[in-house]
Design a binder for these strands. Structure first.
Length: 363
DNA sequence: CCAAGAAA
DNA sequence: TTTCTTGGG
């Protein structure tokens, strides 16, 4: 478990430092994924938009009634870009979190409440930069925001799947079944749930501001392949789950004392499994049910009750939601919709009918 | 984060 | 054309 340097919020299991370069491919041009179905972690995406799309003082985008709209702006424009690149997106949304996560949810709630206080203080003292950081940290995704997002996707003709529990688990399941090419999230959790492929940084404009400094770094999308990862490290998926648990997951956020990426890999390889590691080597401030956590990663709650189908976008409904209900600019939305409808016809509807994109239209 | 207009 | 800055809601 770690605190993300960018938005200051917890991000699940941190496998960053144990993923070998051989298992990662930088995606220089998103069109490399042309024609591929990608299952996007909806909560992860919405949360990022909510945290990032803000004014310098931390104020999010809002409609005339004061309702937050940052998540809708991000979802709308990014989905258009993804479809323009020829990718077929499906979103998956979290359901009821598993009982194992209860502690972590409480912890996050406390962190957000603390951040909300500090945000007020920073606003009082006039420290804009600090205010923005705390605003990002205290960002909360409400049920209404998720409902709005789902309605927008419906209007855009983009399918979404309601997971019974963890969205990352459902995404992994869909990819494993072969109903999608890869999962997409900033978190690594779907790998522990067995997703064969994970895309991170699924964006077009790849400039990201560095936390403290006034600098930007180029962030390109990357593909992580589970089989290559396991072969390169010489471990099994169960071993990888063990490593995740040693480092800390949503179900044991603190991990174990004094164990980082290197030691975790070494211990798991030396003993063959987390349950075989001598207890004295695993020091933790709280009791951790390693067996239950491991079992959850191996057999999470998922469902077959989903349909991945794209429907013709309804520009009028999109406008009703964005312009009429949430005060988006009609000009911007119309321009974007024109791009979208065109890209949708070329990249999604065309291929769905089984026609080669080279022969399906004149010129 | 993304779009759009300005600046380079 | 590409890169940077600002505003979006």
């Amino acid at each position: 478990m770690y605190i993300d340097q960018h938005n200051g919020v917890d991000m699940g299991v941190d496998l960053k430092d144990i993923i070998p370069g051989e298992a990662k491919t930088v995606i220089e041009d998103l069109r490399i994924l042309h024609g591929k179905i990608i299952v996007i972690d909806g909560y992860n995406a919405l949360y990022q938009f909510l945290a990032a799309i803000r004014q310098p003082d931390g104020t999010p985008l809002m409609d005339n009634s004061g309702r937050i709209t940052s998540h809708l702006s991000g979802l709308f424009y990014r989905t258009i870009n993804i479809v323009e690149a020829g990718i077929k997106p499906v979103y998956v949304f979290d359901g009821k979190p598993p009982e194992l996560k209860a502690r972590e949810i409480e912890r996050r709630k406390a962190v957000k409440e603390e951040a909300a206080k500090k945000y007020e203080e920073a606003v009082q003292s006039g420290d804009l930069e600090l205010a923005r950081r705390y605003a990002m940290m205290s960002a909360k995704l409400t049920e209404e925001m998720v409902r709005d997002a789902k309605s927008l996707l419906d209007a855009m003709g983009i399918p979404w799947v309601q997971a019974p529990a963890e969205g990352e688990a459902q995404a992994a399941y869909i990819v494993k079944k072969g109903d999608a090419y890869a999962s997409a999230s900033q978190d690594y959790d779907s790998l522990l749930f067995g997703s064969p492929k994970l895309v991170r940084n699924l964006t077009i404009s790849g400039r990201r501001k560095l936390p403290r400094k006034n600098e930007y770094v180029e962030v390109k999308p990357e593909l992580i392949e589970l089989d290559k990862l396991l072969v390169q490290l010489g471990i099994t998926l169960e071993n990888l789950i063990d490593i995740g648990i040693l480092l800390g997951t949503d179900y044991n956020p603190d991990g174990f004392e004094g164990i980082g990426p290197k030691k975790a890999l070494q211990l798991v390889k030396a003993y063959g499994g987390i349950e075989k590691i001598p207890k004295p080597l695993l020091k933790s401030p709280v009791e951790v049910d390693v067996v239950a956590i491991k079992k959850y990663f191996l057999q999470p709650q998922v469902t077959d009750n989903y349909r991945i189908e794209w429907h013709t976008p309804d520009p009028d409904v999109v406008k009703r939601i964005l312009v009429d209900e949430h005060d988006f600019s009609i000009d911007r939305v119309s321009t974007a919709l024109e791009r979208y409808v065109k890209a949708f016809k070329e990249n999604i509807r065309g291929e769905q009918k089984g026609l080669s994109k080279w022969f399906s239209r004149p010129k």
